[in-house]
């Protein structure tokens, strides 16, 4: 059994697809955000796999920055969810339809 870079890319594809299904299917805004994090991690896995393939550090440094940005993004998104919950008493995405035409 030999592991190729393609194996890692396929795992990343599976994780990204699961995350996408979660974003579309789930109605809890917090769980939608968690599925977004999963998709982000699938992209990170591709970066690390290609960094391994080319034997350089750039991909890993990019993942380092991506994790930092993800932390900032999660903090702001959760603050938005708390603000919405204060206003409308819900985190259900189907109830957040005030912008609907």
């Amino acid at each position: 059994m030999e592991i190729h870079i393609a194996h890692y890319l396929i795992v990343a594809g599976i994780l990204f697809s699961i995350g996408l299904v979660g974003v579309v299917v789930r109605r809890n805004a917090i769980v939608v955000l968690m599925c977004l994090e999963l998709m982000l991690n699938a992209a990170n896995l591709v970066f690390v796999a290609f960094a391994r393939m080319h034997g350089n550090m750039q991909g890993r440094i990019f993942v380092f920055f991506a994790i930092t940005v993800a932390a900032a993004e999660a903090a702001v998104m959760l603050a938005i969810i708390i603000a919405v919950y204060r206003q409308r008493e819900t985190v259900n995405t189907d109830d957040m339809d005030i912008m609907q035409g």
Binding site: E2, I3, H4, I5, A6, Y8, R52, M53, H54
Partner: peptide, 9 residues
């Protein structure tokens, strides 16, 4: 590089 197994990189 794609053809090689990861251990051989």
């Amino acid at each position: 590089a794609f053809e090689k197994p990861v251990d051989a990189l």
